[in-house]
């Protein structure tokens, strides 16, 4: 163990050697909760955004019309409440609220997952709704005009384009979640920040420990943003397309950029 005269890097090395596995496990919990929470939040966001983007039609019948109105009001309240309060407060209210009402203590991983999902869902609902509205209405008209139902037109035409458009925002939300799961330390979720605080407190070496912690956070978020960028490119498909040739004409590749003509 380094002593009082030891320098910064000696302590950093010491922590990496002795606490390395603890950091990794903390990073694992952080990544697990933020990844599953973002995915679940995205599913919530898709469902809520879909419902909120669907035009209300009186012709569907009065019962259905008013049911939709009520559902929308509830969804609207959900979005407003969770966007207007800090996640750290939501964590306290949900965790201690459940234990007070149901007399159960949620396992910390499950608690973290639930809190991150609900919080992310609120943000992504609005992003999905915006994504749906950003798709040219002509796309849906064309789908309806060949006989698709509203649902089919959304599934096959509008949502794939909407999701492509919101992918950067989705990646943003994932990165935010990797960092913001640190607030879950208030309900003792053993994510990266929680284990760091514990290690630092034991040796009273806050700078050294949190230097390592910030490096770990950076590596995680940087890797994730690269992967998402790659995914975006993949969704766009190849820049070039293959000329559909006969057996006598070999397939030729043409550059097809910007919608200009090529012969």
């Amino acid at each position: 163990m380094p002593n009082a005269q030891s320098g910064f890097f000696e302590w950093v090395l010491f922590f990496i050697k002795t606490q390395g596995s603890l950091f990794l496990r903390g990073a694992g919990v952080t990544l697990l909760i933020s990844l599953t929470g973002t995915i679940a939040g995205f599913i919530i966001g898709l469902a809520v955004g879909y419902v909120r983007a669907r035009p209300l039609q009186k012709e569907d019948g009065a019962g259905r019309y008013w049911l939709m109105k009520v559902v929308r009001a509830i969804l609207g309240a959900y979005i407003e409440i969770f966007r207007s309060t800090p996640m750290i407060v939501q964590a306290m209210v949900i965790f201690y609220g459940i234990s007070a009402v149901f007399h159960v203590t949620l396992p910390y991983l499950l608690a973290g997952f639930i809190i991150v999902s609900i919080n992310t869902g609120a943000y992504l609902s609005e992003i999905v709704r915006g994504g749906i509205q950003s798709v040219d209405p002509g796309q849906q008209e064309a789908a309806l005009a060949i006989g698709m139902t509203y649902g089919q037109s959304m599934l096959h035409v509008v949502l794939p384009q909407a999701i492509r458009n919101i992918l950067p925002a989705l990646g943003n939300e994932f990165v935010v979640n990797i960092k913001d799961t640190s607030v879950l330390n208030v309900i003792a979720v053993t994510e990266l920040f929680y284990v760091s605080k514990k290690a630092a407190g034991t040796y009273y070496k806050y700078f050294e420990v949190f230097f390592i912690t910030s490096c770990v956070y950076f590596v995680m978020t940087f890797t994730v943003t690269r992967i998402l960028r790659w995914l975006e490119k993949k969704m766009d498909g190849p820049e070039n397309y293959v000329i559909h040739g006969s057996q006598t004409v070999p397939d030729v590749e043409l550059i097809g950029k910007g919608g200009e003509k090529h012969a």
Partner: peptide
């Protein structure tokens, strides 16, 4: 028929 694999953004208006 030569352009079956092209995406709309790679085609001219006509």
């Amino acid at each position: 028929d030569l352009y079956v694999h092209a995406k709309p953004r790679q085609l001219s208006g006509g």
